[in-house]
Amino acid sequence: MKDFEYFSASSLQEACSLISQYKDVGKVLAGGQSLITLLRQKLISPTCLIDIKGLKELDFIEFDKKSGLRIGALTTHRAIEKSPLIQEKYNVLSEMEKSVASVQTRNWGTIGGNLCSADPIGDPAPSLIALGAKIKLVSAKGERAVALEEFFTDYFTTIIEPDEILAEIQLPPPAANTAVEYMKFATIEAGIKIVSTSVAVTVEAGSDVCKDAKIVMSAVAPIPLITKKAAEMLKGKKLTDDLIEEAAKMAASETDPTTDVHASAEYRKEIVKVLVKRAIKKAFEKAKKA
């Protein structure tokens, strides 16, 4: 690992001013669960790190019936997984978090750090996108809100400016007659995900008709992938097994996976078909009861 200068910010304001000062050579450090490995492998070698992990003001989970949920970017994965509030109102997040790396990583790693690392096999982004997440980016110049689905641009790349910090994630209140289901596929239980998907389904109250749907996937494209055509096929239709299967096939055709040591591109597409089918069915059943 190369040497670097180290600053620990004591407030968001100080963090913003440090990052604007060192934006060309610096990197923001949150939990560092990906960053430190990258530094050790010399894949990146910033000359300065701005440590924001200690910022209490970005470590919160707050819910309001009207405006929904706000999660501070420095909330740990473990805090999200274990939050009774999230377990009750956004259970899919809690379930998804159980699959993020290991307990040790979830204890120290933060949701904001995870999103900013923009790993295409990351789990939180697809679930959050399926729930309609927005994020708040702040800098010394001000702040902006962006839909999470517009945040990612390429492998390990986002729209975040060098002087910006991801401050919080916002979710709308849980929608009526809606369920979101997370499903993953890996060779070993806690292994690298070959595919994972989060599927949101809203049904017309008291019927089998799908009012709205969103299908988001990881590990099948450089960024979290929203398979819009597949979701469109479901909207306004009665969800039969045949239709779900067709939609899952469509989802597979919308993906553009690559081959690596864990699976070939072709096989990933096959798994997409199965996983999306199963996730839609499960979300549909749950939405009817929601």
Partner: peptide, 19 residues
């Protein structure tokens, strides 16, 4: 390399000592 920091298990290889 798991150790306990403030009651939480963490991997010491992936936490900076400064933290």
């Amino acid at each position: 390399c798991t150790v306990i920091v403030n009651k939480m298990a963490v991997k010491a290889c992936s936490v900076l000592a400064m933290q």
